[in-house]
Design a protein around this nucleic acid. Structure first.
Length: 153
DNA sequence: GTTGAGCGTT
């Protein structure tokens, strides 16, 4: 008699489903007040562990906060605890929700520059997408889905 | 200074 092996469990759910995000150092904070700053989030989330960076998403036109942000923990273990603890907490009179980020960093200016393929010879093309955020996160995971350039045609 | 179920190019 052999153990029942689940053939479907070999394939992990692909990224893109924000209903069940997998643990990551990137935390997404949603539903926060428009007046909450990155500094506020940092000092709130730094209670659970060292913070690598905090980024609030701003509206491109009004320059105002869009009501959600991303917190980068240095340890995923702290991120998990911070997600559990900070989720549903009241911040600036607003009930915030915290989840693992399903996306990584904002879109690179023009896809096709890096793509996880280092250019030999003239590798001085790197500018800011290689600043240090791809040290632990592999953006190629969601870039690898036949990502094409969608600049303007 | 509003609203809110959400994932980013300041």
């Amino acid at each position: 008699h052999s153990h029942s092996h689940s053939p479907m469990s070999t394939r992990r759910r692909h990224v893109g489903n924000r209903a069940n995000p997998d643990p990551n150092c990137c935390l997404g904070v949603f539903g926060l007040s428009l007046y909450t700053t990155e500094r506020d989030l940092r000092e709130v989330f730094s209670k659970y562990g060292p913070i690598a960076d905090v980024s609030i998403v701003y509206d491109q036109q009004s320059r105002r906060s869009r009501g959600f942000a991303f917190v980068y923990f240095e340890n995923v273990d702290d991120a998990k605890e911070a997600k559990e603890r900070a989720n549903g907490m009241e911040l600036d009179g607003r009930r915030i929700r915290v989840d693992f980020s399903i996306t990584k960093r904002p879109h690179t200016p023009t896809p096709g520059i890096y793509m996880g393929r280092p250019t030999y010879g003239s590798s001085r093309r790197r500018d800011y997408y290689d600043r240090g955020y791809d040290r632990g996160y592999d953006d190629r995971d969601y870039y690898s889905r036949s990502y094409r350039r969608e600049s303007n045609t």
